[in-house]
């Protein structure tokens, strides 16, 4: 049904395959990667693309392919954790604000407005700069900047569903407010939430990479796409193009895939599109 329609579109089907492939190689990184990503090889420093090293090697002779694969692991993990945290926190805040209304609504929404007043990336930079750039802090920084998205989304959905007859019916049978919200109303807000989370995943990966690119994200020796791009950027002039190209390509491909799937999901779940082939 819906699933079939997601795979029927060739572009979104391709994007879905990319996400699946990236996820799988990340999960199986230790087995898939041909070399230890941190193992230097003095014999083969800055080696170009070859059969031995499909994506070349870096200045220490570490295998670029293995590093890109292991980097995907950390990028996806950070983005996924940040999205999960932001989604949970944002939904809880949005649900409370939307269902309860009144001063709770005012308090939550004005706080969210305050967060949104900062450009998301600057805020994430400030948080990691202030807390120090550990993996946990990067997750926290991205989660905080993403919370407003979900809060606003769920609040809006709550305002809609709390007026429905099934909400009224849930009240007439003696449910408590939190039971109504959790059990009867939130499940009705899932479709737009899934769309938002998919789109936000792409954005989160981009933010991890960008933070690491400027040295405020994941730090070496752990490989990370943005940080690898930053390192590789220094070698473009001297001709070692593979160092910047492949990690950059990995970022682009993954983010693009998440955005495409998110867009397709949005079209599929839009009520106005239902029944349209």
């Amino acid at each position: 049904m819906r699933w079939r329609r997601l795979t029927r579109n060739r572009l979104s089907f391709g994007a879905l395959c990319v996400i699946l492939a990236v996820t799988l190689t990340s999960l199986l990184a230790p087995w898939v990667a041909p070399y230890d990503p941190d193992n230097p090889d003095a014999e083969a420093t800055l080696a170009s693309v070859s059969m031995r090293h499909p994506l070349g090697t870096d200045v220490y002779g570490r295998d670029q392919l293995s590093r890109v694969i292991h980097a995907g692991r950390i990028d996806l993990l950070v983005a996924l954790c940040a999205t999960a945290i932001a989604l949970t926190l944002g939904s809880a805040l949005g649900a409370g604000a939307g269902y309860r209304g009144g001063w709770v609504d005012q308090l939550v929404m004005r706080s969210v407005d305050a967060i949104m007043a900062f450009p998301a990336f600057i805020l994430a930079m400030a948080i990691t700069a202030a807390l120090g750039n550990s993996i946990a802090n990067v997750v926290a920084a991205i989660a905080i900047t993403h919370v407003p998205i979900y809060t606003r989304l769920i609040r809006g959905e709550m305002l809609r569903v709390r007026e429905t007859e099934y909400a009224e019916a849930a009240r007439t049978v003696g449910n408590r407010p939190h039971q109504i919200v959790l059990y009867h109303l939130l499940p009705n807000c899932v479709p737009p939430l899934v769309v938002q989370a998919t789109l936000a995943m792409g954005f989160a990966i981009l933010t991890v990479a960008a933070l690491s690119f400027i040295g405020l994200g994941i730090h070496p020796p752990q490989s990370e796409w943005g940080q690898m791009t930053a390192e590789g950027a220094g070698y473009v002039v001297s001709g070692e193009w593979w160092l910047v190209l492949f990690p950059g390509f990995a970022i682009m491909l993954t983010v693009l895939a998440f955005n495409l799937v998110g867009d397709t999901l949005r079209d599929l779940l839009d009520p106005r599109m239902r029944g349209v082939r």
Binding site: T164, E165, Y166, E168, A169, A170, R171, T172, V173, G174, N175, R176, H184, P187, N188, V190
Partner: peptide, 24 residues
Amino acid sequence: MRAVRGTRIAMVFQSPRTALNPVL
């Protein structure tokens, strides 16, 4: 009052299709 609702007094609504939760 919550204990009365649903146990002692119950309600049947006008449009049953919209009074039933679509996702349960």
